[in-house]
Design a protein around this nucleic acid. Structure first.
Lengths: 334, 334
DNA sequence: TCAAGGTTGTGAACCGTTTCAGTGATACGG
DNA sequence: CCGTATCACTGAAACGGTTCACAACCTTGA
């Protein structure tokens, strides 16, 4: 039977000190070297370990960071979450991982709940960056935003999506594609995602014909969506705004008997590790996931420790050419 | 500036009741219907929401469930973690997801830390099921084990690995494979994983020649390991004890210019959604991940709510044939 | 009419820390 | 030798709920 844990009072009793002194000693403040040693010894002896709950109540700090993901159906976001969780653990913090499943309403509710849980800070991939509650939230605790810019955040790891889109579209254009379908992740209620806007703008510049559709992240659902758009529009290329959606295009193409890149080219976005294993390999816009993880963890740690200087890290993409985008006949090649 | 939250005392004052009455009312105990309504109204009015930390300190319950994963490099385990986290959220609990990265020592430390965090229960995929600390742990809080049996757990979702291995090996055997490499996930310090034992036993029965090696879960690392074993032993088939390791075999085969299943067959284990997208599709032993998630969440909820009846759920696998296992020449076909 | 029993509600202790204001003691500068 | 800093430590008040023991009131049945 695991007996009751020792309390700070017992340690105080054992050392002949006050609980306050013990509390200070264990955190290395305001006490003599000798007392500290004595307290440490007694604590070890009694197997004392401060209760995180009581500590949280008294100090207002929990050592937890909320991680609010846009949609964990997305394998890339899964990797991100795992990486961040691991990074935080190395800094002796816990990640409370929550999934907004692409729904702004749920995002709002979960953010609320995380705040109620008294997390020391939040790392978010906003589903609806324009939502007004963010600015309030940022006032009550440090927030680090990933992907989208948020007013009042302590830190931001933003993607140069403009550049990413240009990279992708110019590549498609150079290989002769003109009729392109854009498949962006479904968001329950935010109509013009930056992706749509950026892509259509850039498409205009390049003289491309773009048809826009959305797809959920899950493989089965993405496959359905891809199936529909391939059927309806027969684009020469599909630009997926997440690799996990591109996977759905692969599946749909197989169902329809279309070859990639022979009948349809596929361009991804984010470069999940699995993308290199497909046949053909997925040509995609690569974002350095390790860099993002490191930046997010660093910014969050700094902010949670009080170093409130607002910082912004901009990630630059590169094009990772593999085999899924082909040259269209009728265009002079090398 | 977000003003301070309302406390239970303010609600008490507003309703003219004692804090105790309010506490009871909000949890629907021991008070008249009318009072309850009055309290609810006042709480809504003041925007009162009980502080989870204070509640945890007083009641000893945190609403958090620790989720201790074996290794989150494994995509399948990622899916599992995401699913469980979501399932718990639906029951108004939070999952604290931690990753033992296949290391028993770390597993022990993390389990300890989770207990210190006062989680209401733990769901674990034990890296080292034989470790003695499990039984102690099970005495101090409800534990649900996934995959391996653990002494004293409140619940278990175990896999009939014997059946899974038989399914895989008999399939390989039937198609003429005799010289088989087994690739199991690396565990830092537990030498004979059930997998090894089961597989060698079953292999003996079938008269198969098995060479055993381990591989880490990460794609790059798994690829290296696969590369080595393919190079050294030229098996006719590789049986990977996790799909994520099979992915490494695909990568290694590509590097070596070996075709699947022409030059080497690959058998997976767990059936991650991506496995169907590879070329050829990965033939694998399918475990119903949704069923596992549901069972784990159900058992944990029951245990955490006090229904301590020990329960054991056994999962049965099925063979998911795709294209990665081929018939060896010299064996009569259908 | 009275004892027994069932509802509602109350006061106060408690959960285990942190932190604030303050108390002696010691050191130091003048 | 005195006033003032500094140091090491203490007492008590938070922090914001839950829960236990008990009181007041209302029924009920004999």
């Amino acid at each position: 039977m695991p007996r009751k844990r020792a309390t700070i009072r017992e340690v105080a009793q054992a050392t002949g000190l006050s609980p306050a002194a013990v509390s200070y000693a264990l955190r290395g403040m305001q006490v003599s070297e000798e007392t500290m040693e004595r307290v440490r010894a007694a604590a070890a002896e009694l197997g004392y370990e401060a209760d995180p709950i009581a500590r949280a109540l008294a100090s207002g700090r929990t050592n937890m960071i909320g991680l609010l993901c846009g949609s964990l159906e997305d394998l890339w976001q899964q990797s991100l979450a795992v990486g961040i969780s691991r990074g935080l653990r190395e800094k002796d913090r816990y990640a409370l991982i929550l999934d907004a499943v692409g729904d702004p309403a749920r995002e709002r509710a979960l953010a609320q709940q995380l705040r109620d849980q008294r997390v020391d800070g939040m790392i978010v991939q906003p589903v609806d960056p324009a939502a007004p509650f963010w600015s309030e939230l940022c006032e009550s605790l440090p927030v680090v935003a990933i992907g989208d810019s948020l007013a009042g955040t302590a830190g931001e790891v933003v993607f140069d999506n403009r550049r990413g889109v240009t990279l992708a579209l110019e590549h498609l254009h150079a290989l002769g594609h003109r009729r392109i379908a854009l498949l962006t992740p479904t968001m329950t209620s935010t109509p013009d995602r930056p992706a749509d806007v950026l892509v259509t703008a850039e498409a205009d510049r390049l003289g491309l014909d773009i048809v826009v559709a959305t797809a959920p992240h899950g493989l089965a659902a993405a496959t359905d969506a891809a199936h529909r758009i391939l059927d309806a529009h027969r684009p020469s290329a599909v630009f997926c705004f997440a690799d996990s959606i591109a996977y759905g295009v692969y599946a749909a193409a197989a169902e329809l008997g279309l070859s990639i890149p022979g009948d349809v080219s596929v361009m991804g976005y984010d470069n999940h590790p699995m993308s290199g294993l497909l046949t053909p390999g997925l040509t995609t816009v690569d974002w350095d996931i390790d860099g993002i993880v490191r930046a997010a963890v660093r910014l969050m740690s700094a902010a949670a420790d009080g170093g409130t200087r607002r910082r912004r890290v901009v990630q630059q993409p590169t094009l990772r050419e593999r085999g899924s985008v082909g040259r269209l006949p009728g265009v002079g090649g090398p």
